[in-house]
Simulated scan of single mutants.
Amino acid sequence: MKSTTRGTLAAVITGIAAAVGATTPAAAAGTLPAPVPLEGAEQSLGVELPEIDAEVPFQAAGVPEAPRYVAGSVMPDRAVPRLPLGGTLPGLSVRAPLPHLVGDGFDHVGADLPASDLHALSPGLDMDAPLTPPDPDNFGMPGTRLPEAGVLAPVVEAVPEANLGVGPGL
């Protein structure tokens, strides 16, 4: 292998390693910080504007549940399995100036909605065929019955929280 080819290959591998290393902490945290830049509007309008910081979440799909076979049923339990989803709810932090009614100066009012864990299951389908399993008393032939179908409702679990506060200074 030529030295230029080795150098190019080393540069590509280094770039890939740097890209993976840069994205790993953000992906591990579950959210990506997204500040809202309002400094230009503050300077052009000559007023104090709120400081807004947001957190954009990453959602990750899990592994669906495997079908389970039930004795006395032709089709497996949960024919269309539910898909688990995991991630976080978006977070938001707002801090706005609050002018004094009497005198000069500012205080602040702030709201903090931190990102919180989110666990969900997509809807699923549970059904059974209109045939029974083979019956030895009927020469091994299956019998008939009414078909059964049911929808498994989606599930969402989250515990969001919020903090509201007023304090001195900006």
Results as ranks from 00 to 15, higher is better:
155 V>Y: 12
132 T>Q: 04
158 A>G: 10
165 G>A: 10
124 G>F: 06
111 A>N: 00
143 G>I: 07
128 D>A: 06
130 P>I: 03
154 P>C: 10
131 L>I: 06
136 P>S: 12
121 L>K: 04
166 V>C: 04
123 P>S: 15
148 E>S: 12
154 P>Q: 12
144 T>N: 07
113 L>G: 00
119 H>M: 11
133 P>L: 14
143 G>Y: 06
111 A>C: 09
109 V>Q: 03
162 A>I: 10
148 E>Y: 13
128 D>Y: 00
123 P>T: 11
151 V>E: 08
121 L>T: 05
122 S>E: 02
137 D>W: 13
163 N>G: 06
128 D>H: 02
126 D>T: 04
135 D>K: 09
139 F>A: 14
131 L>H: 01
158 A>T: 14
160 P>K: 06
139 F>I: 08
116 S>N: 13
141 M>C: 01
166 V>K: 04
125 L>G: 04
156 V>D: 06
161 E>Y: 06
130 P>A: 05
134 P>V: 03
119 H>G: 14
134 P>W: 01
158 A>N: 09
164 L>P: 00
164 L>A: 08
117 D>L: 06
163 N>R: 13
121 L>I: 06
119 H>Y: 15
114 P>K: 01
141 M>D: 02
141 M>L: 12
139 F>N: 14
147 P>T: 07
118 L>W: 02
164 L>I: 11
124 G>Q: 05
115 A>Q: 00
140 G>R: 03
149 A>R: 05
134 P>A: 04
109 V>K: 02
144 T>W: 10
143 G>W: 07
111 A>R: 00
152 L>S: 11
159 V>F: 12
150 G>N: 07
158 A>P: 02
138 N>E: 14
149 A>S: 13
119 H>C: 09
132 T>I: 05
136 P>D: 12
142 P>V: 01
133 P>M: 11
150 G>A: 12
131 L>F: 10
110 G>S: 14
127 M>G: 00
128 D>M: 01
134 P>S: 05
142 P>A: 01
129 A>E: 03
117 D>W: 03
135 D>G: 09
156 V>E: 05
115 A>E: 00
109 V>A: 12
112 D>L: 04
157 E>Q: 14
155 V>C: 10
116 S>T: 15
113 L>H: 01
136 P>Q: 10
138 N>Q: 15
136 P>E: 11
164 L>N: 04
113 L>C: 02
139 F>M: 13
128 D>R: 01
121 L>A: 08
135 D>L: 09
135 D>V: 09
164 L>Q: 03
153 A>F: 14
149 A>Y: 07
129 A>M: 10
158 A>Y: 08
123 P>I: 09
131 L>V: 07
133 P>W: 03
161 E>W: 03
138 N>R: 15
132 T>N: 05
155 V>S: 15
118 L>G: 02
132 T>Y: 02
122 S>T: 15
162 A>M: 10
146 L>F: 14
163 N>T: 13
153 A>D: 15
126 D>L: 03
115 A>N: 02
160 P>Q: 09
113 L>F: 10
111 A>E: 02
114 P>E: 01
